[in-house]
Amino acid sequence: MSARKTILSQITASLKENSGTLTSQADRMTAAERRVNSHPRGVIPDLTTKSGSSTLSVFCEKAVAAQATIKKVKSYAKAGSAVQSFLRQHNLPQQIRTGSDPKNSKLVWDKNLAPQILVGPSDGNDLVCLSHALGAVAETGTLYLISGPSNPTTLNFLPENHVVIVAEKDIRKSYEGMWKTLRRKYGKGKLPRTVNMITGPSRSADIEQTLILGAHGPLKLHVIVVEE
């Protein structure tokens, strides 16, 4: 008997043993499919925090609590110079690795000093990478990044500095809002290769439980919120 068959029949036998009676395989499959199709939400935590309960203010407060930095701008055009001032503030060269996201064309760079833009996946030699988030969740200050040519996954983990742009309209109150967005965009029961939920820069507390930022991923996570 194949391993698959052995395991599945042992599970069925155990369930029978435990409950005495067991509904038919078909009935149990129907129950499972019903749950998958209806995907009940369960308990959603309250969002009110000390900075009020608007989705944007909670998102900012939670992201900062997770050691991300935040800059709010009024348009994509202005997001370009927000990226550049982050580079200047941290004495970083004006060189950015990014994907082929069409939103990049809306960014307007400083007149006299446009940064050098490199497009494509990272090989680990980039100091700064720029990504666009599909959305974010206020509950914990979490960004949602989606794999693909627009925003390659390597950009999220290899650079020391990761700058992420997210539109205010794409920030949801809780994770459940983002699952809805993902289902609408990719279809029911489907996801892109990787969905990265990112909350603050990388860290470790493995040495004497001392929390240190910048383990294997970025040392800095800078979030630019576009309030269009």
Partner: peptide, 15 residues
């Protein structure tokens, strides 16, 4: 910090 959802191998257009 990271909660990562992985579904299958790289897709046709992935880099």
């Amino acid at each position: 910090v990271y909660t990562t959802l992985s579904t299958g191998p790289r897709r046709k257009l992935d880099v």
